[in-house]
Design a protein around this nucleic acid. Structure first.
Lengths: 117, 117
DNA sequence: CTCTATACCTTGTATAACAAGATATCTAGT
DNA sequence: ACTAGATATCTTGTTATACAAGGTATAGAG
């Protein structure tokens, strides 16, 4: 398992949420399109289980549509709950970025008061 | 398990490397000091196994020193290999940050040559 | 009818964070 | 001496998630 793989844990789902919000997509497309954003290609064994998980949690819904060449595609779109989850992710991601960069620059922080989310 | 927990995977070790490079520290201290950088307190069940792992991989070395109040402290410092690992981590982290932020801003990336956009 | 590309899904494995608990050391109070 | 509490380290078992490897199915081209 690569080291970058570990860094994607808990981050990839937020990325998918952001992509789906922008534009209806199907799984097979995602596995390829992520490269457009600078990621290495993600395996289908990663994408599909994640999409099913997110649907189970009602973050996304799916509809089958005919393909021009192959079996039907399952297009995903964001639910209201998914948008909320995306907003939460954005907050967590920004906070993580700041904290990690603080460590890397040896900049300590005056602690937030009584905040535990 | 919290959602932020997942996001720390493969990131915490780089953070520890950065802290240790800056200043010799012992494990118990780390578990507390990370809060200064904006992180929630990390459990000792996270810190100690990670330090042992990094020592096993020769990223850090340790020396026991007397404590003013309690058992001996195991102070860790960076090896040459550890510094190299830290540089690698920095690169991976910066690349990850950029890629994730690209996704979140829907900014695709022109990969390699053939740029006619 | 076969081959290839497209499209989706499942099973099992590896890794890393963490909760819970075990162990040991030192000081202070009784 | 004994007890309590803070300090300090380590281990075991659980959980979440990325991924490799494999399976299934559809459609067009030859």
């Amino acid at each position: 398992m690569s080291t970058t793989t570990q860094m994607m844990k808990g981050i990839l789902d937020g990325c998918l949420l952001a992509i789906i919000k922008n534009k209806e997509v199907y799984g097979y497309e995602l596995a390829e399109k992520l490269a457009d954003y600078g990621f290495d290609n993600f395996s289908e064994g990663t994408i599909y289980p994640l999409l099913l998980r997110m649907q189970k949690e009602s973050f996304v819904t799916s509809t089958l549509k005919k393909s021009t060449a192959g079996p039907k595609r399952k297009y995903y779109s964001l639910t209201e709950k998914g948008e909320e989850e995306l907003r939460d992710f954005l907050e967590r991601w920004n906070y993580l970025q700041t904290s990690v960069n603080n460590v890397l620059n040896h900049e300590t922080v005056t602690r937030r008061s009584g905040n535990d989310d």
